[in-house]
Every structure is written in structure tokens, then in C-alpha cells.
Design a protein around this nucleic acid. Structure first.
Lengths: 221, 221
DNA sequence: AAATAAGTTGACACCTGTGTCAGCTTATAT
DNA sequence: ATATAAGCTGACACAGGTGTCAACTTATTT
């Protein structure tokens, strides 16, 4: 609905060696807004967050946020379009250049590392999908679909070559997605289950080992 | 915050044999409101839904909804407290009376059946957890925790007896939760991946077979 | 130092949402 | 038929949300 109207600041270089930090106010504030709003959106969903909340969390007056983003939707969309990166990064490990063992282990660990290091992005992505993926563009979805299809072909190749058991490659991928997302998305349940107050790196590590262990001995021949 | 103020209708019996349907208006409308609002909450989250939307979806004027529920929170809480049922139902299959094969297969199928037959409840539950489980009471969480602990003990028993491989039982449970939830929670992604417009029973069946197949041959000795 | 562009802000107009209430209609009991 | 309770509803007061704007301040250029 909103056109991506970018206000181009006149980028100018200082004569002297640029002091770190206080240059490019626009860049800094834009990032701060995105950072703060991601957490809010992940927790409360798109409608659950007001511009006032975003402004307060950023430490800016509300009207100032509007100087950088025309609408709340613009902020949300800017966040969403960044999210596919993590998805892609982990999936790349499932490649014909790796052995199935390497590939699946690396994938599971990469996915859980991402979940541990970027819990907010993980939750925001899940929240967007759960809400019907209404802000993902067709382009984004097509791109994800293409990525998925490539991995399906890799897995099916391994099956044809007798490296792994013949299962539905698509459902295997979804099993991995679901299993590797659970920890960060369902943090309250996971904490209750693990009888811990907060998820520690060791918990992610244990999850990675359990998941890759079970899936590997489940599919390897 | 809101006290559970129940307006007790004077339940009276008709003289003649009660005609089906048009008795107990209160019960019928209360159910209609819960039914309609569950779908909305699941999709948009608590804050994303207005009483007007609920009223429209129910087919009642807004003020009439307030006749049955004092606040929006009351509606949401009424829904949340029903959700643990599905959780519990599937978990019961993991019992010392079953063999590990039976138990795990039955669990996976039960969980996916529930997801297929009650997609709205599944999503609502996920949405509540993702949002931080803010409306689950301590009692609810303790109960779920107790249920989980029992299953962990069953699994560890099987490990001690040499029926299944030694893995972290808690993470095995979470693997199952995550894998069996993915299909209905991430419906848009699942549809893209499976190249289908809507999830059909066959898709749930394929998921159940893939998940139980991989996990079984992953943990059985 | 003067001019210009970038950044900041309080206030405004407007809309949507919540919860309440008095008074209405319909059903049930006597 | 009349009384009483259950159910329904339009209108209201209030709180909070969105997006805009003119005027102000600060930075950068010339």
C-alpha cells in the first residue's frame, strides 16, 4: 500500500578523518528503530504494536519516527524482507558437495545457531508465517520455494544413490524446520520442559545433537 | 484482572419434550462467540482483534457480545484454558503400557490428527506460546510440566531397558512437538513446499509417516 | 556568516477501539 | 393477562491509535 519513498540525504564527506559513530544520523536512527521494533513485533504481532511503543523503545519522540518511516507497515515490511537471510544461510549446507552426514549435521547446527543468536528475528519470522505470511511478497515466497526445491533435489539424489533411506524429502525438510525452530519459538514451554529459567547455549547444543543424532541414524543407510 | 462473573440463567425445563436447538440461548451464543473469536485470535493475535470483528464474525451486534463476556480478555482466557486438552490427549500415548514403536507412532499420528482437525486451536496455542504464554495460568503450566515429566520418565525407562537409544528425552519430546506442529502452524510455507493450494489429509498422513518413520528408526535399537 | 539542507518536535484532526448503560424486546412462569 | 427474568441494542464517554504539519533547532556547505 505505501510507496517506498526514500528520502535521500545528501551524503557528504567531512574534510578531516571521519570520527566513528556520529556520522550518518539517518542510518543510525533507522537501524535503531528497526532493532527496537523487531522485538516488539515478534512479541505482540503487527497490530499489537503502536508507533508510540516503537518510539519509546527506540528512545525517540513519536513524530521523529515518522520522519524516517512513513507508516508502521513500512517498518514491518523492512524487517520482514531481511528475514529470509537466516533461512537461506542454513539451507546452503544441504549441498551435493557435502556428504549427507556433514550436510544434515551442519544444517541443524546452523539453524539452531541462528535461533540462538537471532531469537527475535526467528520469532518475528514465525509470527509472520503463523499470521498467514501476509507481508511476504510473492517474490520472497517464490525465492524461498526455489531454494526449497533445490534442497529437495539434493536429498532425492542422495536417496537415488543409496546414501540415505527413501523418505519424502519435502516432509524431511519440514521435520527439520519444525524441530530446529521449536526451542526459540516456544521458549516458555522449552524452559518449563528443561527446568531452566532461560535457554543457555548448552541447551541449543543439546538440541542440535539430539536432533541431528536422531535424524541421521533415522535416514542413513 | 476481570473477575469471572458468571450470569447464571434460571435454567428451566419446558413442559413438553424439548425441541432441539432453540433452547439455552446463552450456551449457543457463548459457543458461537468462542468459535468465531478463536479463528481471529489465531490469525491476528490478541491485540490484533477487536470486539467489533468478533461480533461481526459471530453475527451478533457488538453490545450483545458484551452481554456474554465482560471483556475481550475474558473471551481469550476462556479459549486458552481449553487448549491443553489436545496436548494432553496425544501425549497419553507415550505410556509404559505401549511398546516404544506403538507409542511413538500413535503419538505422532494423534498429534497430526489433532492439527488437521483443529487447526485453529493449534494455531491459537502456538500464537499464545510465541507471544510469551502470558495468558497461561501458573496452574496450566505446572500441569503441562507434570505431564511432560511423566513422559520423560517413560522414555528414560525405555532407554534403561535397552528398547531405545540413549538420547536426551526432553529434547526428543521437543523434536516431536516441533515436527508435528509445523504443518498446520506454517501452512503457507508448507503449501509452497508441497506445491499444493491447501493441506489435504494425505499431506498430514505423509507427514505422520515420514516423522514416525525417521524418528523410530532413529531411536529404536 | 549566511544560506541551505537535515533533523526534531508539539500540536492537531481524525479514526478506531473499549466498556457501560438505560431502555427496549422477547421468552418463561404464575 | 400479567409479572418477571433473560436477552438485545443504539448511543455515549473515554482512551489510545494513526498520520500530518508548520515551526523550530542543529548540522553542513559555500
Amino acid at each position: 500500500m505505501g510507496e517506498g519513498s526514500e528520502k535521500a540525504p545528501a551524503k557528504t564527506r567531512r574534510g578531516r578523518g571521519a570520527e566513528a559513530g556520529d556520522e550518518r544520523i539517518r542510518e543510525r536512527n533507522t537501524r535503531a528503530i528497526l532493532r527496537a521494533s523487531a522485538e516488539l513485533f515478534a512479541e505482540k504481532g503487527y497490530e499489537g504494536v503502536s508507533m508510540l511503543q516503537i518510539a519509546k523503545a527506540t528512545g525517540l519522540p513519536r513524530a521523529n519516527v515518522y520522519y524516517y518511516f512513513d507508516t508502521k507497515e513500512d517498518i514491518y515490511r523492512a524487517l520482514i524482507s531481511e528475514l529470509i537471510h537466516g533461512w537461506e544461510l542454513a539451507l546452503r549446507h544441504i549441498s551435493p558437495e557435502n556428504s549427507p552426514e556433514q550436510a544434515l549435521t551442519a544444517y541443524v547446527h546452523a539453524k539452531l545457531d541462528y535461533a540462538r543468536l537471532h531469537p527475535i528475528q526467528s520469532r518475528l519470522f514465525a509470527s509472520e508465517i503463523l499470521g498467514g505470511a501476509k507481508f511476504l511478497t510473492r517474490r520472497d515466497r517464490d525465492y524461498m520455494h526455489a531454494l526449497t526445491r533445490e534442497r529437495v533435489l539434493v536429498l532425492e539424489q542422495w536417496m537415488a544413490e543409496g546414501h540415505i533411506r527413501k523418505v519424502d524429502a519435502r516432509h524431511l525438510l519440514m521435520l527439520l524446520w519444525g524441530a530446529t525452530q521449536f526451542l526459540s519459538l516456544s521458549e516458555p514451554l522449552a524452559c518449563d520442559t528443561l527446568e531452566t529459567g532461560t535457554l543457555r547455549p548448552a541447551d541449543f547444543d543439546a538440541a542440535a545433537r539430539t536432533i541431528s543424532g536422531i535424524v541421521l541414524s533415522g535416514v542413513l543407510l
